[in-house]
Lab assay of single mutants.
Amino acid sequence: MDETGKELVLALYDYQEKSPREVTMKKGDILTLLNSTNKDWWKVEVNDRQGFVPAAYVKKL
């Protein structure tokens, strides 16, 4: 969790967005987890953008 109590995830792999609903991340990025109710796609925030990334590409910290 960060200082505001939000849950964080670590990008395990690079991911290039394939639609406007997704976000690009690089391996090693720390992202804010917004929603993990879907087992396949998690909603995150990175670089002031919100979108989805494959759940298998990130790990909760």
Rank of each mutant, 00 (worst) to 15 (best):
28 G>F: 05
54 P>S: 02
22 E>M: 04
55 A>V: 06
10 L>I: 15
2 D>H: 14
47 N>G: 15
16 Q>V: 14
38 N>M: 09
55 A>D: 02
40 D>T: 13
31 L>I: 07
51 G>V: 04
49 R>M: 07
20 P>L: 09
54 P>K: 03
56 A>F: 08
22 E>C: 06
58 V>L: 15
26 K>H: 10
36 S>F: 07
59 K>Q: 14
47 N>E: 13
31 L>Q: 00
48 D>C: 11
4 T>R: 06
43 K>H: 11
35 N>S: 12
28 G>N: 06
18 K>T: 12
39 K>S: 11
43 K>N: 07
16 Q>Y: 15
2 D>V: 15
26 K>G: 04
52 F>T: 03
16 Q>K: 13
25 M>H: 01
22 E>Y: 06
17 E>Q: 14
60 K>W: 07
43 K>P: 01
60 K>I: 12
44 V>H: 00
35 N>W: 07
50 Q>W: 07
16 Q>E: 14
47 N>D: 13
59 K>F: 10
9 V>E: 00
1 M>D: 15
37 T>Q: 11
30 I>V: 10
34 L>E: 03
35 N>K: 06
5 G>V: 14
54 P>I: 02
57 Y>N: 05
11 A>N: 00
52 F>D: 04
34 L>S: 02
1 M>W: 13
39 K>R: 11
39 K>T: 09
57 Y>L: 14
52 F>K: 03
61 L>S: 04
27 K>F: 05
33 L>C: 07
35 N>R: 06
27 K>E: 07
15 Y>A: 00
6 K>V: 14
55 A>Y: 02
58 V>A: 03
22 E>A: 05
21 R>G: 15
7 E>S: 11
45 E>T: 07
57 Y>H: 06
50 Q>N: 08
21 R>H: 13
27 K>W: 03
47 N>R: 12
21 R>V: 12
56 A>E: 09
45 E>S: 10
44 V>R: 00
55 A>N: 02
7 E>Y: 11
29 D>F: 04
25 M>G: 01
51 G>A: 03
20 P>W: 10
46 V>Y: 12
25 M>A: 02
60 K>R: 14
49 R>H: 07
38 N>F: 08
40 D>Q: 13
8 L>G: 03
20 P>N: 10
20 P>G: 09
51 G>E: 02
54 P>D: 01
35 N>Y: 06
58 V>P: 01
60 K>M: 10
51 G>M: 05
27 K>P: 03
12 L>S: 02
24 T>Y: 04
6 K>F: 13
47 N>Q: 11
1 M>V: 14
22 E>V: 05
